[in-house]
Amino acid sequence: MPTVRHMTDRFGPTLGERIGTYPVAGQAGAVLQALRRILVGFLGTLLVLLVFRRPEGALTSGAILATVLLVVYGLRLAWGRLAARLGIRRCHLFTGGLVVTGLLGGVREVVAWPQVTVVNQSATVSLWLTFHRIELVRGWTAPPVTLLALGRAPALASDLRRVVTGE
């Protein structure tokens, strides 16, 4: 599996100094984010109803719901740490370009800044979906590279904007 040091050693001479390594997601990641938020909202609503209505066996039902909520968050944290450790779905940002790894940790795209002609960025911030979509258009030479950074204000979006604009 490629590590950050491996990426820096392999692409550093051509892409310059490494700025950072950031998580990116695919469409499945955005859908899973929405499903996780819907599940947490539903289970939270059920917990509140259990507290106010107090049916028979409310304590047992509440304990089961709380356990499921903790398992959902635990799985999310575990997947995030495992993906970071194995280099799965990462964007390695350099001063001269970026390297994107795929689901198995291998290099999916390498983009040098001179190739990029247009950078399109859009954001969706709602209760169920929160992400930034960044598209790097490379003119006529290759298809565009699309990055999906989950979260309200991901560091990738601000650092990429700073590198591309030269701030």
Rank of each mutant, 00 (worst) to 15 (best):
T146Y: 02
V31R: 09
W113S: 02
V31M: 09
L86N: 10
V31P: 04
S61W: 09
P144E: 12
E167V: 10
H92L: 06
T95K: 13
G102N: 03
R18I: 13
H132D: 13
G87A: 08
R10L: 15
M7W: 12
L39A: 15
A28V: 15
L136K: 09
A78M: 13
G62I: 02
L148I: 15
W128A: 11
G57K: 01
D159K: 02
L70A: 15
G97P: 03
E56R: 01
P13R: 02
G29E: 04
L150M: 13
L15R: 11
R36N: 15
L32S: 01
F94H: 06
Q33L: 12
I19C: 10
P2Y: 11
G44Q: 02
E135Q: 07
A142I: 06
V72Q: 00
S61I: 01
G105F: 07
L156K: 03
V48G: 00
F94K: 03
A34V: 06
A30E: 10
T60E: 05
A66K: 02
T8C: 04
G16P: 11
R37Q: 10
T124Q: 08
L15A: 07
R108D: 14
T14W: 11
L47R: 05
T165P: 00
L156P: 03
T130E: 13
P154G: 11
G20V: 10
P154D: 11
R90E: 13
T165A: 09
F52S: 00
P154E: 11
S126D: 08
I64G: 01
L47F: 03
L70R: 10
